[in-house]
Design a protein around this nucleic acid. Sequence first.
DNA 1: TATGAATGAGGTTTCATTCAT
DNA 2: TATGAATGAAACCTCATTCAT
Lengths: 189, 189, 189, 189
Amino acid sequence: MGRKAVYTETELLDATEKLLITHGYEGFHLKLLSEHVNGARSTIYQYYANKEELIAACVRRAMQRILKKIEVIDETDVMDALHATLRAYIDESKLHQILSVISKVKGEQSTNTQADIAYVKEGHDLLRQQLFRIMTRAQQEQKLRQDIPVMAILTVFFTFVDVPNTMGVSNDDWTNMLFKIWLEGVKLG
Amino acid sequence: MGRKAVYTETELLDATEKLLITHGYEGFHLKLLSEHVNGARSTIYQYYANKEELIAACVRRAMQRILKKIEVIDETDVMDALHATLRAYIDESKLHQILSVISKVKGEQSTNTQADIAYVKEGHDLLRQQLFRIMTRAQQEQKLRQDIPVMAILTVFFTFVDVPNTMGVSNDDWTNMLFKIWLEGVKLG
Amino acid sequence: MGRKAVYTETELLDATEKLLITHGYEGFHLKLLSEHVNGARSTIYQYYANKEELIAACVRRAMQRILKKIEVIDETDVMDALHATLRAYIDESKLHQILSVISKVKGEQSTNTQADIAYVKEGHDLLRQQLFRIMTRAQQEQKLRQDIPVMAILTVFFTFVDVPNTMGVSNDDWTNMLFKIWLEGVKLG
Amino acid sequence: MGRKAVYTETELLDATEKLLITHGYEGFHLKLLSEHVNGARSTIYQYYANKEELIAACVRRAMQRILKKIEVIDETDVMDALHATLRAYIDESKLHQILSVISKVKGEQSTNTQADIAYVKEGHDLLRQQLFRIMTRAQQEQKLRQDIPVMAILTVFFTFVDVPNTMGVSNDDWTNMLFKIWLEGVKLG
DNA sequence: TATGAATGAGGTTTCATTCAT
DNA sequence: TATGAATGAAACCTCATTCAT
């Protein structure tokens, strides 16, 4: 019963995510969104009580997506696990941009929003801790150099994730190349 | 001598830069700026015709600053030059954030703005080309591995610049550590 | 017998009346109403063409209710009639609040609404005239002082109706107390 | 320095008060206000941060006005004091309408608003307590009947304040008439 | 020149009402 | 018939920019 929806919630979040990436938190407007989705601006309020709630839900979904991908990585072989992790992040190359939005979301009004913010924050910590754990194990297994603090290795790793694929190669090739550079450096011999 | 002007152009640009870093292009407002500077909001228009012009001037100045620092680097020794370059960038750790603002500046209105945008774009290319040149030379001199395209090495280098100093060490130490990782990688042995 | 309708017209008007009292004309919304009744907002339009029509019907019903109560009052004894009248009004303590809403209802659109507005206006006059008549009779019968115009006595009477029962006593006791004050005043002796 | 203001704060509050009386809290809009004052809607925000703050300030001012009038009343003679009090309230015949608005004002956002709300609430209590005190004294001095609780006398008094001047006489005459009715009642002899 | 004040454009949100299932 | 969904009008509020002192 009732009229057919002009778009699904998924479509709404997809469009939101795209616009958050291209315009950033402050440049994201509901008018903009409504122009990228067929339907009136006010219709958005059928799905989310306000802009903040929508953005928070969008960021949360992105976090859920990466968590799901990271979760299934086999940690038997430490180096394979790191490689797979890098690949997962590169597949979600815009992830950091989206997640960083969460720091601007104002959650005072809605408990929904607050819950989403908390979820994303926890996800952040989880991802960081898991990588820290794996890398520590890699150091112990003599797979990573020990004269550099894990924290530094980790931070560099997180930055590699954001290296733009200026070569325009496949994600597979790009992951392999970055992983190699991360491991071996760029110096000859 | 007359009464001190409410604020000098330099103070205005300094405040603008700080706020662009903390709030981003879309989060930067003249009201905000006037609250961080001693004088009224409308006085800003004595210096710049509009917001875009102010922002463009601010980004231009940042580009000038880094160009000046890069310009004086001695290129005799290729690897020293790269190290010094990394150090220069790390000293200007927020540089990328500022420069990236330029892509959002709308320059249709003012030729001043357009000139500034062009200047920044050219500076960008200049920096990139210079590094490209140095790295190519380094490859030729057998200082950098040849199985990885210079473009990839370069892109990674540019990303290193943005690795946040999570260890909280001095810029000197941080540069050394990053440079070492960039060169040698994180793998043991 | 078929499924029970989501709500009867009576339920709708009851809820409307309650909300008009608590929120006033301007604070009354159909969304609010639909939340206080079992059924969807749009279903309201099956009963009334628009918000104004609903409100007008609600006020009209309240007027009908008080008219019915006043109508049956035995006027044989003038003072008993006045006492009974006060009691009837006090039983409908929120009446004035509801009736006053009518002045805000916009009736241009619907003849139904216009008819309801007219009905309420006429009822108003009727009530006033009837009381005026009784009081004039009471004056003639030497039951009410003659040095005060009936109009003033009447207006004061109408105000007594709205004295909030701050003592929290029964309607019976409250009526008696107010009637006594109205008649005898508050001065000692 | 700076442009000449289109209206003073007093004019703004006067217009606000008038509109609050005629349209009520929920029917009061800034667009409406801007139409009753020369100047654009957005100009209002130069004076008050938001609608609630404006309304709260308006109600506060009304409370201040009545407090000032009540304050100066000479309490030497208890009955004279009560008469003067009634007169003061009748001069501010719309007072209750304005003050009642305060219960709808949402003050969560602004401490200014909260302070104004508190001020009005306290003023309310003050007025009530002062009258209670005077009336209690009047009872003790055998000026008011003792078979009726002061609370009831007080409540009736507060209602008298709102009796509309349907006779169209001067405030002086109206006060005298109401005071007489309040004291002596409407019964003959 | 510096600035307080004014303002219109544009963004957010709510709500009566309509649509289509 | 009942309703979920859509929507435009209208309210609130912010901000870049202009005005006039």
